[in-house]
């Protein structure tokens, strides 16, 4: 089919015509290429990114595993700084209960009892102290039961205080006669509810000291926890940790237990292959 002369003229002249673009056009082209590379670059670099990501994960995982195997100083500090709430901030009834059992062996209780007598009943500790000393001194088992029960309400405590008017002389008498308190303690241990109180005695001595001295409060709790809880826990000892420990021993000039390492240098035999 023959082309129209106008079509033929324009097609022949203009089909392969060229107009040189300005320099600004090339700069724009370069900018577009760079923005395109920046926009799609991170997923087009897929294999390299994947390799980098995997190696980063492996490194992080290995580091975490090593850290978890070896207890660092920060771990023990973190553990010791998280004491159980009953030691740092004991509940008022429990506090009174604990102190009540220790009361005969402390002289400071006398001053507290004096405060209680002066009428400062608004404080929660004071009536419990006085109430706690009262049953031990009055030698009535019924009253000791009431106080030693774990959940003692303040109203009950107030009643006990009212029924025991003179606690100070009785306490002095107790200090003079420790055998009586022992007998009372044995009487208390005879009942199942009171057994728990007697078992708490070793801890309570520390908590009482800590409570009376606020400056040493944190240190005391820290040391008690690290001594009792952290060290008593059976630590998971892996092969890596054992080897690490022996390395530390060797570094510090201490004796190296080769059984822990897994081989003994004197028993290692070199294998020589001659060709």
């Amino acid at each position: 089919m023959k082309k129209h002369p106008v079509d033929e003229l324009f097609s022949r002249k203009l089909r392969d015509a060229e107009i040189t673009p300005r320099d600004e056009a090339f700069q724009k082209f370069q900018q577009r290429l760079q923005t395109k590379e920046r926009r799609i670059g991170w997923w087009q670099q897929g294999p390299w990114l994947a390799a980098a990501g995997v190696s980063l994960l492996l490194m992080a995982g290995g580091g975490w595993w090593l850290m978890s195997q070896q207890p660092s100083e920060s771990d023990t500090v973190a553990l010791s700084k998280t004491p159980s709430p009953k030691i740092v901030a004991p509940n008022p009834p429990q506090n009174g209960e604990q102190k009540a059992v220790i009361a005969p062996s402390t002289n400071e209780l006398a001053s507290l009892d004096k405060k209680a007598k002066a009428g400062s009943r608004s404080e929660s500790q004071v009536p419990t102290f006085s109430s706690a000393t009262a049953p031990t001194s009055s030698k009535s088992n019924l009253k000791t039961k009431e106080v030693v029960q774990p959940l003692v309400q303040e109203t009950q405590v107030a009643q006990v205080v009212e029924t025991t008017p003179a606690s100070e002389p009785v306490k002095q008498m107790k200090l003079e006669e420790p055998s009586k308190t022992v007998a009372l303690a044995s009487a208390i241990t005879a009942k199942p509810t009171e057994k728990t109180v007697v078992l708490q005695l070793p801890e309570l001595e520390k908590t009482l000291v800590a409570a009376n001295d606020p400056q040493t409060n944190v240190a005391a709790t820290n040391s008690s926890i690290t001594d009792n809880d952290v060290l008593d826990k059976p630590r998971k000892s892996t092969r890596m940790a054992k080897v690490w420990q022996q390395l530390k021993n060797a570094k510090n000039g201490e004796k190296v237990d080769w059984d822990e390492v897994g081989f003994h240098p004197n028993k290692v035999v070199a294998k020589a292959i001659g060709k």
Binding site: L14, I19, T20
Partner: peptide, 11 residues
């Protein structure tokens, strides 16, 4: 590619 085709494609 730009050097080779830009003038023709601009036309």
């Amino acid at each position: 590619f730009y050097e080779k085709y830009s003038a023709r494609m601009l036309a």
